[in-house]
Structure formats: C-alpha cells, structure tokens
Design a protein around this nucleic acid. Structure first.
Lengths: 343, 343
DNA sequence: CATGCTTTCTGAAACGGTTCAGAAGCGCGT
DNA sequence: ACGCGCTTCTGAACCGTTTCAGAAAGCATG
C-alpha cells in the first residue's frame, strides 16, 4: 500500500499524489479529491513517516533524556511538571516527544539514543557519567541541557540551586535557629559525588553558605533513596542526639515529608519545636501537615523554555549553537507553616 | 557525511561498511576496525535512523497517547507510575517511547499521531472522542488500550473500576455508614458523559451498587478539575447540610485530600466524625493526615503489561490482532486511618 | 496567430541506509 | 591440477516518499 498504488488508482502521477497529501495548494481540487478517494478505498494510512523523514531530513520529534533522579520507587514530582512544560513548548508544531528513560541497562539506553529518530535532545537532570548523554552529544544534533550536567557548551536551562538553598538556610538563621540538621542525597563535597549529581552539591554548598556559623557537619545526614523513610529515620536519629537541631533543611519535599513523619513519631511539634524546609514546592508540600515551607522552582517553565531553545536551534540549523544562550530561572522561598522561631 | 563516505575512506564497499555497524559478525575484524576508524576520523555519527528505518520497516519506537485525565494543573499521580511501567516493559529492547500528550490543539495532536514514526500505539486513558485515538486507529498499527476507551477490538489492559468502587462503598456500609457523600468527576450517568470518561461512570456505578440502600443522589457532588479545592468546597457544602454524611467516597486521592481539607476547615474530625476513602493509592494517600483509606491499583504493572502486549503484537506481525488478549488487573482496598464506624 | 504568463501535472532523481545474490579468494583433499 | 566448501566482500536493487526541472495546457495580449 504505497503512495504509488494510490496514485495509480487515482490515475495521476506519484508526484501529484504526494502533493495532494502534503501541499494541497499545489494541485487542483479535482486531483486532490480523486487521490483522497483512492486512498480511502485502498485503506492507505497516509505517507510513511520514515520515508518522509528520510527525504525531508526532519524527524519531527525531539528526544528527552529523562532521569528519575535518585530512586526509582518514588516518583520525582518535578518530572511530570517539567514534561508538561516541554509538551506545551512543542504544542504549536506537530512535534513528538521521544522519551528516553534511564534504565538499569544503561548501555541499551545509550543505543536507543544513538538510534533515535529525533531532531535534537533535551538532557534533563542526568548524571554526569550517564552514557546516554555521551551518545546524545555524539549525534551532533542540537542539545539543550536542563539542570544537569552543567558545563557543556550547549544552551542551559536551570535555576541557581546554590542561591536558592542559601536563601532557605538564611531564612532559618533569621528566625534564630542555631542548630540546623540537613537531609541530603550526597554526603560530602568529594570528587566521587561530583560524578553524579551536581545539583545536590550545589544545594549542599548553598546550605553551608546560608547557615554560615551554624553549619555543623555532624548534623548532616544522607538519605537514599529519595523517599520519606530514610528521611524519617535520619530525623529520628537527629532528634535523639544529646543536642538535637531545632530546624531541618531537606533537599527535597519528599525528604521533608519524611522529616515530618520522624518528628511526629518522636512527639516533636512542628513548627513549635522543630522547623522543616523542603525543596521543590511539589504537590505534597502544600498538602503536608503542617504545610511545608519550601523552595519553589518553575518546573513547567523550565520545560517550556528548554523546548523553545531547542526548537530555535533546530530552526536555525547547526550554526545556532554559537548563539546559544542560557537561562537561569528565578526561585522563591514559599513560607508556610512548617517553620517558626526556635521554641 | 554518509555511510558512503566512510566506506570510501576505509577503502571498502558501502555494503561492508554497513555490516561493520549493524552486523559486525559478518565482516572480518580488520575491515570492521578500518570502518570504525574512518567513521571516527570523519566524525560520522552512525547510520541515519530515518534511512535505516525506511529500509528495515521498523521504527524502533512506540507511541503513547497520553492524557492528563481531568485538569491540567494537578498532575495525575498515576501517570508517571504508568509511564515508568511502560519504560520497564521496553527495557530489553532499544525501543523509544514517543509521548503524544493531549493538548489544547487536538487537531495538531492528531497530526502528530498521523506522522509519528512508531511501530504501535498505547492509548492511555483517553477520552472517547479524542481525535488522536481515531488517528492512531487509522494508522493500522498494533494498538493496546489502557483504561480507556474500552470496546475497540484492540487488546485491553485495565482494572475493574466498577468492582473496585463497589468494594470501597461496600466497606463503608459494613462499617455502618448510612449517609455517604460522593465526590465525582461527572454528575450523572447520561449520554454526554459517556463520550468522555468511561472510568468515571464505572466508578460511579460501582459506588451506587456498593452503597445499595444508602445511595442518595443528593449527596453526589461534581468536582472539576481534579484538584483539592473543588473537593474541599463540595465537602464543606455537604457538611453544612441539615443532615450531613458520615462518610465520603472520593473518585481520586486528590479529591480525597480536598475532602480532608474541607473537614478540617469545618472542624469535623476524620475519621471519628467523617470517614474518607480515596482512589488510586498514590503517594499523597499514604502521606495525608490522617493517611487515606483508598483503592490501590497497579499503575506500573499496567504500563509494563501494555508494553508487553504491544511488543508481542509487533513481533508477530498484523496477524496477532486476532489472538489479542485483555488483562483485567486486581485492585485492593487499602485501609488506613481515614475510615472508622460512624461516630 | 505568435508570444508570454499561469496553472497544473509528470517523471526522475535524490534521501541514506540494508540486504542479498553472486564473485573472489583461499585452503585442502584427491 | 582440479573441484569443493568456506569465509569475506562487492555492487546493485530497494525501502516510500518529496521535490524540482520541465512539459503541457489554457488564456489573455499585442
């Protein structure tokens, strides 16, 4: 069932048949009608996308290297919002969204990247050593990097994680907190961690800066995966220390939820006896009890911007890589009811 | 930068060059090395996916028609889990996941469907009148339908929404509740609603059956979009009635969260004075206060199964449509702390 | 009626690979 | 020296479109 068959049946050349589908204004109404009718009769499902692609050179889709940050079991609530933003950014063009998820088999995933029929990639919060990233770069297609990994010469979209974290820490200091626990994904600022998630390091550094004198390494706890339970345990541990913290900075809302659970379990009142600050302002933050003070960042906007930047690059052809710009989006500390001056 | 150039540079035929990439076992080690070296020198990014596709006839990707059910602003927490399941199901093959989101411009979205380079589609919880579904069916590719819309002859994966809802309602009856409010997406079981989301109708019917004698149409409230706020208001409304309900059945966890908020606002204790049951067992359910009793369904498993069924169809060629099977997955009522006998 | 301008249609050349039938080269038994 | 079977390589056909130069037809103009 090829275009050729349709053309034959309609009694026109393949050229005309092609136009009838793709550039209706170039053929007479009569020919178009005949072609469409013939297609209908033959059950022709429309021009083969692969062939069209080969000929036109446009894939009509963009790839999104997608990581569920830390931990598979709890969905990062930021991801769907980001994806929605990307979809919005693409809404005007008939462009597909090829998701390339992280997988246990990273080698296979890299192969998917190599073979993906796309016009460009968005790299979303990928670990620095992810072979998919390398594969994407090797394709020599336009690329936009979101959140991670910083530093390539591709356009970048993200937030100032360090400043945002610093603001959160600073707020606690202003409230008067002197002993502040930190729930993080990575322990130290060492080289091994650098391979993984820069974001964590940035946030951690921000906390340290914002806490200034109140920064105490022994109050830092690593929670993996990004789920409430590790955070709950870490919080209990902190609260049972001889000199427990009066506030907790959590690197994600999910961890903050765990902190709330831990506090409840230890009969420590939030915010009267313990303040808690999350990160992301996801759905769970506003619906926690008490509602979480947290750092809001524009996930959806990130997605839309990334799509837009990528589309621009694709339009302009490879030359545009040079004129690539980066966007650092603003964050905001949303103060709710999980923070108060130390009791 | 074509394969031809690489072959030339390596001093072999294009045929051999192709084999060097795609079927290494068919060429001598020496030729392969030469080809790879030439590719490296020339910066050849690997065989063009579009061309490979055209020749082999396999797109190497599947399309997922994706709807964010009701309401754009609050992400359906089920969707990411489902997607993760699909990704898992595809993990073994280097297969991409082409997301085709719902959009305001449904016509454009349908065009994306028509032009998508995929080997098959998963239709996930789409409204029955969604033009994307029609477009997907017209492609004559393998299709698996998940949750919605039931009734085509394509393989189907889903749960028995009606039975699940009935079980939830039945549980309330067993606890002794006589007046039960219902928070739903659709008002009545009329024809207009049939066009949209069958799932809502099924659940509603299940509630009605499970409530049996206790079913009271005037206690049913429609909440749109699927967000806490409408549910909060509806709950307040219900609670301020002369004879308020002692329990509430919410069609989603999100609505149940809203119900909890409404109850708190009205100073009605949950579960002592009001029981609340959600639907989905999403992350928010277990972390609500009090933790929600809710209907759990295997979102991720649905995704994996759908991917598997689709892959099977693709493997076996078009003949397999006949042998298509459907899968109804089990649900479970997860009892937590938001339900109790009426006070 | 020759001329030039539109509008519409045709046919063939790409697009960049994969695959397959057959050629070439080689080792070996007789 | 010859035939045979293997492995390896080549060259051309083909996948299903789009596009583009040019042919044909229709029409007004001088």
């Amino acid at each position: 069932m090829r275009l050729r068959d349709v053309a034959e049946r309609a009694g026109v050349s393949v050229g005309s048949a092609s136009q009838a589908f793709g550039r209706p204004e170039l053929v007479s109404a009569e020919v178009r009608a005949r072609v469409l009718a013939a297609a209908e009769e033959l059950g022709y499902p429309g021009p083969d996308p692969a062939a069209r692609r080969l000929r036109t050179g446009r894939a009509g889709a963009i790839g999104v290297l997608f990581s569920e940050r830390l931990g598979y079991q709890f969905t990062d609530p930021a991801a769907p919002a980001f994806l929605r933003g990307v979809a919005r950014g693409l809404e005007d063009e008939p462009t597909g969204l090829l998701l390339i998820p992280d997988s246990r088999r990273r080698a296979e995933a890299a192969r998917t990247v190599r073979e993906a029929a796309v016009d460009g990639f968005i790299v979303y919060s990928a670990a620095r050593n992810d072979p998919r990233v390398e594969a994407a770069l090797a394709r020599r297609l336009p690329v936009v990097v979101v959140d991670q990994p910083r530093g390539s010469e591709a356009p970048f979209v993200g937030i100032d994680d360090r400043a945002a974290a610093r603001a959160a820490a600073h707020y606690l200091r202003e409230l008067g907190h002197e002993r502040v626990g930190v729930l993080t994904f990575v322990t130290t600022l060492d080289a091994a961690a650098a391979l993984e998630l820069d974001i964590s390091r940035e946030r951690l550094a921000g906390y340290e800066e914002g806490l200034a004198g109140a920064w105490e390494p022994e109050l830092v706890r690593t929670c993996r995966p990004n789920a409430p339970d590790p955070a709950r345990e870490a919080t209990l541990d902190l609260l049972h220390a001889p000199e427990p913290p009066t506030a907790i900075l959590a690197m994600s809302d999910i961890l903050a939820i765990g902190a709330l659970q831990g506090a409840a379990e230890a009969d420590v009142a939030v915010p009267d006896e313990l303040s808690v600050i999350g990160f992301d302002d996801s759905f769970v933050a506003s619906n926690a009890s008490p509602p979480l003070t947290t750092v809001a960042q524009p996930h959806e906007e990130k997605g839309r911007l990334a799509a837009q930047l990528l589309l621009e690059q694709i339009e302009r052809g490879p030359s545009a890589a040079a004129r690539s710009r980066s966007e650092i989006l603003p964050t905001e500390l949303v103060v709710r009811s999980s923070t108060a001056p130390p009791g």
